[in-house]
């Protein structure tokens, strides 16, 4: 399967460092909370924010590496947000299975939902809304990038 002349593996290669960034923030958030760090500090390491910053970075990468166009930034945004939501759902599932507590099941984030409802919310509406927001943001950024920082066309080098 190809998106804008690039295969899924090409996209994965481009996104791997950003998946790493989201995973790192997710892990740090868990560790900080388990270590008893203040909630204000834990909030700083937001997986949602990491996803948003990753979308920003991938849009810049796609533009400056001439990786592709709007289809590619939308696909990348979906993948990054999907991955972030999957990690959150995993953390909630882990808390449910092991009967432990972590930051992702804190009352201020779960809104008194059951574990199942909470996981379902992340994998349905939150996934869709955040993906659409991320895709919109990525398209707007790419549009502005093309306007503000246009790249010169590649020159053919001929003997």
């Amino acid at each position: 399967m190809k998106i804008g002349e690039h295969s899924l593996s090409d996209h994965l290669q481009l996104l791997t460092p950003l998946f790493g960034l989201i995973t790192a923030v997710w892990s740090l958030r868990m560790v900080l909370q388990l270590a008893g760090a203040p909630m204000q500090l834990v909030r700083v390491f937001s997986v949602g924010l990491a996803g948003s910053v990753s979308v920003l970075v991938v849009t810049f990468l796609i533009h400056f590496k001439r990786f592709g166009s709007y289809a590619n930034v939308v696909a990348a945004a979906f993948a990054l947000v999907g991955y972030a939501q999957l990690l959150i759902a995993l953390a909630i599932a882990f808390a449910a299975i092991t009967h432990t507590h972590n930051v992702f099941v804190a009352a201020e984030f779960s809104f008194r939902m059951t574990f199942t409802q909470h996981i379902a919310s992340h994998l349905t509406v939150i996934l869709v809304f955040q993906s659409l927001m991320a895709a919109g943001m990525a398209c707007l950024l790419l549009l502005m990038l093309r306007w503000l920082v246009p790249l010169t066309p590649k020159q053919d080098i001929r003997a």
């Binding site: 409802q117 919310s121 994998l123 349905t124 509406v125």
Partner: peptide, 8 residues
């Protein structure tokens, strides 16, 4: 997905 999670 939106339909399924409409109350969440």
């Amino acid at each position: 997905l939106l339909y399924l999670g409409r109350h969440l």
